[in-house]
């Protein structure tokens, strides 16, 4: 009995710990007061509307969106063939390839960001947006490879041979019978990559320039000068967006199967 109470207690604490900050942010966002505070002073939606009026938020939101979409697409463009090669051909360097591809998960973002800045952006004078795009692609790639590999593993390879014997070319067989069957995995990888990229802070921190900031970085920057609840309102909006994406993905794809 006590053991059971204890386990419920722990569960409640964990949930509070996970959901608590989110609730606080939502509450702070609905404040009618002038500064970021909890408990909020009065209730209003004025800060939620304010978010859409702030020019820099609109710009950095656009940049983050573009990075998340195109970075993830690029990662998939690289990741699908890599996963396919690892799954289908017993590559002599398959394991090495897997390790290299997963490196960005393991290496702390701060280091990746610093390395890119020090050895790519500064010496080669690479455009900062391009550097961000490269960085986000590299960060998402390991997730793309992992998720796509998992769905390839469940797909028998003899269906490709069957397609070939029915007159298809090898490449045609990939597009006709492999791709349609790993569609779910690819969509799951896209969503996971999108969220990962969109929420990315440490790497982007190093790769910001005048007028070029991703949304999370812009929020930090905004907080440094203005301490009004609009940041909380934005954070709450973003949290709802993420939840909506994952919910839809789970609903239609069984997202949790892949991650």
């Amino acid at each position: 009995m006590t053991a059971r109470l204890l386990s419920y207690g722990v569960l409640t604490l964990v949930l509070l710990f996970l959901i608590g900050p989110f609730l606080i942010i939502v509450a702070a966002a609905l404040s009618a007061g002038e500064s970021l505070a909890f408990p909020p002073q009065g209730l209003s939606l004025r800060w939620v509307f304010k978010v859409f009026e702030i020019e820099s938020f609109r710009e950095s939101f656009g940049l983050s969106m573009a990075l998340a979409i195109f970075g993830t697409l690029a990662a998939l463009l690289l990741g699908v063939p890599i996963s396919y090669a690892i799954a289908r051909y017993r590559l002599p360097f398959g394991e090495t390839l897997r390790t290299i591809v997963s490196a960005p998960i393991i290496v702390p973002g701060i280091i990746v960001g610093l390395a890119l800045l020090r050895y790519l952006v500064i010496p080669l004078d690479v455009d900062i947006v391009l550097a961000l795009f490269i960085a986000h692609t590299a960060l998402v790639l390991p997730y793309a490879v992992r998720v796509v590999s998992a769905s390839l593993e469940n797909l028998r390879s003899d269906i490709e041979e069957a397609a070939v014997l029915l007159g298809s070319s090898r490449v045609g067989a990939f597009f006709r019978v492999v791709l349609p069957n790993i569609r779910g995995g690819i969509l799951a990888a896209f969503i996971l990559g999108f969220v990962t990229s969109f929420n990315q802070v440490p790497v982007s921190l190093f790769l910001s320039g005048p007028g070029v900031r991703t949304l999370p970085i812009d929020m930090i920057w905004y907080l440094e000068i203005t301490y009004d609840p609009s940041v909380a309102a934005l954070a709450a909006l973003l949290a709802f967006m993420s939840i909506a994406i994952v919910f839809i993905a789970e609903r239609f794809l069984g997202f949790s199967r892949y991650v």
């Binding site: 028998r156 269906i159 397609a163 029915l166 298809s168 070319s169 069957n181």
Partner: peptide, 27 residues
């Protein structure tokens, strides 16, 4: 292989899971 006009029925059937029976045969 795709030009030999040799058919092979696999032990594992190797049907295309995303296609209907009709589309499998029509492939």
């Amino acid at each position: 292989a795709n030009r030999r006009q040799v058919g092979l029925v696999f032990q594992s059937y190797a049907l295309f899971p995303h296609l209907s029976v009709f589309e499998n045969v029509a492939f």
